Amino acid sequence: MQFTSAIVFAILAYTNTVMATPVPTSTAVATPPATTTLSLTQQLFLSDTAVDRFKLLPNNDDFVFSFNQDQKGAGKGGRLIAANRKTFPALVGSGSGMAVGFVGACGMNTLHVHPRATELQVVVQGRLVTEMVPENGVNNPDGTPRVISNTVNAFEMTPFYQGSVHTQFNPDCTDAVFVASFNSEDFGAGQIANETFAVGNDVIAATFGQSINGADIDKIRAAIPASIALGVEECLMKCNIKKN
């Protein structure tokens, strides 16, 4: 196919006209980026690198956590303050957490477990009587479950293994303080009594061999104290502390 000179000139003229026509600019207003609803802990988790995490913690005091604070829902026997990745976002990426327990006279950190961490506990003031039941199958020679009991004095340490049932009790009339480290930023805790009596009455009755009825179960539920609780009667009498 051959083009005549007239056709060629017509094509070139049309092309030049199209190219010279200005492209209209959009009058739409740019939409601003949406404000994030993520918590600081979540933003730290989503950071591409550790360098990016530090940019989200611009202040030096972002790396300081104070245990000198009140515990919400503390029991009558003391208080426990936990530093985890929610209460202390700088822990994100560290794989570590910590708690400090202030256990009053005759106070008891009631039976509990940590579902995601092993605890290393150091007593830094006073002393604590500790007990731990590791798991099914850890038995005494007579076949009964082994309970690892110790009196831990100031600047002595004991471990509580992940998932083990354990407790600490202050047998004295003066305050005790412990520091606990965990190999998790989210170690968690579950109080055994609270969790046991949270299930249905029929399950509880069967668990205890039908030795308690529904009315008694409700009374027990209502009487379960918040941790840290006031402890054994002998200590309460020795320290002249009125029993609840």
Rank of each mutant, 00 (worst) to 15 (best):
V113L: 14
R116G: 01
G101P: 04
V133R: 10
P115M: 02
R146N: 11
V103Y: 00
E135C: 06
M98K: 07
A82Y: 08
A117L: 05
M98Q: 12
A117V: 03
T144Q: 12
F88R: 00
A90V: 02
Q71F: 03
K86I: 13
Q71I: 00
Q69G: 09
G143M: 11
I81C: 04
G73A: 03
R85G: 11
N68Y: 12
V113G: 01
G143R: 09
S96G: 10
R85E: 15
V113H: 05
A90H: 06
Q121H: 07
V133C: 08
V92L: 12
V133E: 06
G93M: 07
E131H: 09
L111W: 14
A90W: 01
P115H: 07
T118K: 05
V103M: 01
N109E: 12
G126V: 00
T130R: 09
V123Q: 06
L120Q: 10
G78V: 02
H114T: 02
H114S: 04
Q71Y: 04
K76S: 14
D142S: 06
G93Q: 11
R79T: 00
P145F: 08
E119M: 05
C106N: 01
N136E: 14
D70A: 14
G137Q: 11
D142P: 03
G95R: 07
R127E: 15
P134W: 06
S96E: 09
R85H: 12
L120I: 14
P145D: 12
N109V: 15
K76C: 02
